[in-house]
Nucleic acid binder design. Sequence first.
DNA 1: ACGGACTACACAGGATATGT
DNA 2: ACATATCCTGTGTAGTCCGT
Length: 301
Amino acid sequence: MQIKDIPIDQNHREITLHGSYEFPMAVYLDQLDRNSLGFVNWHWHDEIQFSLVTKGEVEFWVNQRSYRLKAGQGLFINSGYLHMSRPVSEPDSTYICIDADIKLLSFFPGSAVEQNYIKPYLKLSGFSEVIIDGEAEWHKDIRAKIVEVYELYTQEAFGYELDICMLLAAMWRTLISNQKNRPEITTNEYVDQQRVKTIMSYIHEHYMEKITLQELADIVHISKGECCRFFKRIAKCTVFDYLKNYRINKSIELLQTTELTISQVADSVGFGSTSYYIETFKKHVSFTPREYRMSMSIPQR
DNA sequence: ACGGACTACACAGGATATGT
DNA sequence: ACATATCCTGTGTAGTCCGT
C-alpha cells in the first residue's frame, strides 16, 4: 500500500508549495485511491488548476457545483476557489493535475499582461471554474495542451520550463477569450465560501484541541443551526466529518514520521479516546493504526 | 438568521481480550 | 508486562425541523 495526500498544513490556507520559487508550478498524476481517504478533501490554493481525467470517472466539486468527468474530459479551477475530487465508482480513477502560480503568466509584476489579462480575471464573477469537455476546437486545444504540459514536465528535456510557460499562457489566453455561458457566483455564495474558509482555517489550527459547534458558529457570527446548514450546503459534508477527516490525515503523518504510540497519536490529533480513534481510523482507512504503520515500514517496490 | 424541541449518533471511558 | 484492539454503555451534543 502506498498512500499519498496533498500536504495540507496548519496555515490559514491548506496548501502545498507547487514547484519551487524559481519555477512555481507542478504537475501531478493523481490516482485517487492513493490518497488515504480515497479522495482529495476540500482545499483551496492561490494557483490556478487545470485537470484532465485519464482513467475512470471523477466527481469534482467547485463552489456548490459538482461535475462528473470521464476520461478525456477536463476542468479549469481559478485561483482561490474551494474544491475537492473523488472517484465516482472506480477507486483508482486518475487525473492529471496542473497547479500553476499566476506569476508564471504575468511575465513580471505590474506588467500590462498582469494588469489587463490576469488580475481582472482572478476575481471575476462567473469565472470560478470552466468545464472543458466539449467538441469545440478550443476545448480540444486546451485538453491537448494539458497532456503536452504533463509530458514536458515529466520528461524535463532542454527548455521544458520555457515550453510550459508558453503553453500555460496560451491556455489562459484561450480560456479568457471563450468565457461565455459561465455559471454566476452570487454574493451569498461568496460570503458562504469565505465562512467555510474561516471555519476550515480554524480547524487546521485547533484540530488537536476539543472543538465545539458553538465555537465554530461564534467565529463566523451565526447560530449553531445555521453553521451546520451552510457548511453542508457548501462542503457537502458536516463540519465534524471534515474535522474527523482532517484529524485522520494528521494522524497518518504522525504514524509515518514519528514513533509515538497509537495512544499518543490519538491524543496529539485531538481524539480524546484511543478506542474511538482506532475505530474511526479503521472505518476510514480500512486498517487499524498499527496495521497501517507496519505496512508502511515494509519497503515498497 | 434565530431559537426551541427533538432525535440520532458521536464520543468517552471502563472492562476485557488479544498480540508482541 | 505492556501496548493495542474490541466491546459495551451512558451521556452530551450535533444535526435537523419548524415556526418566527
